[in-house]
Amino acid sequence: MEEREFTKLIYVSQRPFWHFLIAFPLYYFTISMVFKAVELFSSGKVIEALKFLLAIFFMFVCAAGLTFTKKVYTNAKLKTVRFNFTLFKIPLCRDSVFKNIQYVSVYKNYSDRDFEIYIWLSETQKKSISVHLDLQSAFDYALKIANGLEVDLLDATEKGNFKWVEKEMK
């Protein structure tokens, strides 16, 4: 109970409208195909019904990927962060919780040319929590987490030139 008193929502994923435009027909066809699969099972055409179930699964995963919501909660007092993934308010998995966070860093992955955000649990233990294609979105997200946890942010985007980022506390 004490943990919830200090938990603060710092991030909610914002989906562009076109994601929903693409997902709507996928959900519609998924539902239509469920009825067809039931009809095929009831008529004894099991192999065809299983093919439909496989197509339903892939179509649903594509639609869910376009419409799921990610929420990030932080607790500055306990230095914990919680990641929550839902699909239309239905939890997709158990919340990921990381405790005793020391600091947050943004790292440039030169092999993939993207930017990763790490949370550091100790001097040697880190967890990758997000990957971004551009530097600005990576820093915006990392700064929200660092501010929510009231920890430092490390800029590790240049090899051998790591520096602490000055941030404004709100």
Score class of each variant (00 low, 15 high):
Gln125Leu: 11
Ala142Asp: 01
Leu149Val: 01
Glu150Pro: 00
Asp134His: 11
Leu143Ile: 07
Lys163Trp: 00
Lys144Ser: 13
Gln136His: 10
Gly160Ile: 08
Glu123Pro: 06
Asp155Lys: 00
Gln136Ser: 13
Leu135Trp: 04
Gln125Asn: 08
Leu149Glu: 01
Asp134Cys: 11
Gly160Asn: 14
Ser128Asn: 14
Asp155Phe: 08
Lys163His: 10
Leu149His: 02
Glu123Trp: 09
Ala138Ile: 05
Glu123Phe: 09
Ile145Tyr: 04
Lys144Leu: 15
Lys144His: 09
Lys144Trp: 04
Val131Phe: 08
Tyr141Ser: 08
Leu143Ser: 15
Glu123Ala: 09
Asp134Lys: 12
Ala156Phe: 00
Ala146Met: 04
Leu135Lys: 14
Asp155Asn: 12
Tyr141Gly: 06
Lys144Asn: 11
His132Phe: 05
Trp164Tyr: 08
Leu143Val: 07
Trp164Ala: 13
Glu158Arg: 07
Leu153Val: 05
Thr157Val: 10
Asp134Met: 07
Lys126Pro: 13
Leu149Asp: 01
Ser128Cys: 11
Asp140Cys: 05
Lys144Met: 12
Asp155Ala: 02
Asn161Asp: 15
Gln125Ala: 03
Val151Asn: 01
Leu153Ala: 03
Ser137Thr: 14
Lys159Asn: 10
Asn161Val: 13
Ser137Trp: 01
Asn161Trp: 07
Leu153Asp: 04
Gln136Arg: 06
Trp164Asn: 13
Ile145Thr: 02
Leu143Trp: 00
Trp164Thr: 15
Asp140Asn: 14
